[in-house]
Design a protein around this nucleic acid. Sequence first.
DNA 1: GCTTGCTATGGAATCCATTTCATAAAATAT
DNA 2: ATATTTTATGAAATGGATTCCATAGCAAGC
Lengths: 324, 324
Amino acid sequence: MANIKEIARIAGVSVTTVSRVLNNHPYVSKDKRTAVLKTIEQLNYTRNMNAVHLITGRTGAVAVILPMINSFYFSVVMDGLAQAALMAQYRLILCQTNYVPEEELKVLNMLRNKEIDGVVIVSTALKPEMIEPYCAYGPIVTCQNSGERPYSSVYIEHYAAFRHGLDYLHSKGHRKIGYCEGRENGSSASIRQSAFQDFLAEKGLPFDPEWMIFDCVREEDGAEVARRLLDMRSRPEAMIISGDHVAAGLIIEARKHGLSIPEELAVMGFDNQPIGRLLEITTIDNQLYQMGSAAFEIVHKHIHGSSLPVTRKLEYRIIERSTV
Amino acid sequence: MANIKEIARIAGVSVTTVSRVLNNHPYVSKDKRTAVLKTIEQLNYTRNMNAVHLITGRTGAVAVILPMINSFYFSVVMDGLAQAALMAQYRLILCQTNYVPEEELKVLNMLRNKEIDGVVIVSTALKPEMIEPYCAYGPIVTCQNSGERPYSSVYIEHYAAFRHGLDYLHSKGHRKIGYCEGRENGSSASIRQSAFQDFLAEKGLPFDPEWMIFDCVREEDGAEVARRLLDMRSRPEAMIISGDHVAAGLIIEARKHGLSIPEELAVMGFDNQPIGRLLEITTIDNQLYQMGSAAFEIVHKHIHGSSLPVTRKLEYRIIERSTV
DNA sequence: GCTTGCTATGGAATCCATTTCATAAAATAT
DNA sequence: ATATTTTATGAAATGGATTCCATAGCAAGC
């Protein structure tokens, strides 16, 4: 109820002085400072932050766009973001958009509206040209390579990482290779798909469209893939699977049916998830937590001045375990 | 850059009229409305939401307090919260506090500061008496039974649910029962622990402190428990485990060492997680998604008037599969 | 002794939209 | 024909802080 004006009146100072006390400005005498603090205490006063946001033009909040939080991938990235935000004393607005473009645009409009100081786009259904105009209103960081676009990004080299995994399978002697992917048209999924097809073409390996399976998101989907593989007349010797959860489902189901892994079927996971460690799945770690924390650090820097867009590439590495 | 005043000047109307157009107020003539809309279009104007928040005293944002997002349990609750918030056109501020009380208090103070319209506390290190004073500043909903406290809650009957699970194990003939838990002093963990000890006492079952294992959070912890069990001279016949991820770790590791489940060791999970379905773990579903969505709906109702605190109890049920 | 620099303080402008109140014209009711 | 209601409009108050600018006392520098 009380405001800065009333504090000033009761403490016998100007509102400017009260504001100075609130903001730890040095030019306030000891007497006045204590008088102000006493009054604040007495009236149980706190700032109305909306007034602060209005006048300063800052809110101390950053929005995060992602399709769903209930997925290992996104919750790890979010964890990285959240820890970095906590350190920097920033607030994170979680915008779970289910890949609905209108919702994603609403979030970008929050930047225009000055409700937030920046946006981190972890994954989106929006095309880069839809995002670009919003750069005028504040910093935007994506988790996919933004290349020549005017916004920053932190990214994994999906193409190279995936090829690296394929090379590994190849080096282990596998020639008939299958592939499991999440959304067929996801932007990183498309990149991996190209990597897969380019690799097969370059090495002259057999390509069977039946060996390329999409919409594999949860453990259960992996189990379903295992069943499909068992029914095939011609089965791949190795599978590369985006997401260790899916790989886990496949492995458990396949073993249940007596298929031995890696002898009869090699499995290479992706994302280095905890379940993979437990099942000793050979996988590719691509630093999802770091992706989140780096993304936050970049928006944070942009908010505090640095305006040139940056692109930060993250390293990946194969974790050799026992399913290949 | 442009503001409502400038729009008014250029469109040749008063600021009041512009505000009416922005808020779809009926008492605006067609001519003036189109003139205003045209000017808004021309100047590429959008409201400064901070001014709106200041004058209306509302922000359309709700904060969520939870220790970590990167955990199945919390990410499912968060999913429920996020979907409900999306429907209601509300923003969610994710406050990952790592159970640091100071951070949690900061969030509650956002309510005082008028930065948010309400708070959902999914899990906290704060005692109820620390939370209570903040009820004066806005609606608070917890995900643990708030009983006679002046704030609302959505909760699972952890005591009853856990006993129900124990009863099930007992009905299947198990007498030597062990127990895996997450944080030893978590508020719901403590309830489960009492349920466990009360049950054993009432049924006159043997209690071995070695069979009660804490700090089991990830798959790996479950695997570690399996190894410990294998080393015991006297081993329980059944384990009740809070969290299917942990149960999965235990089962996989135990089987790796040749222990047959459920014959040599029965395992009852908790939370009905996807991994549990894959491994056919008998578990207790306790509607975590619904917990999130209900929690949001309750804050939402409070924000829009209804001030009496409510406590909403969620149902649980055993999912019989094949590990008991 | 005079200029410069630092400390301390307050007045007033500023950020920007909403809403109450007042007024008047037009439409409807009596 | 008069009284009442509805529609339309704007001036001004309101929400609550920050900050620029002006002023003044006092200390240090030359």
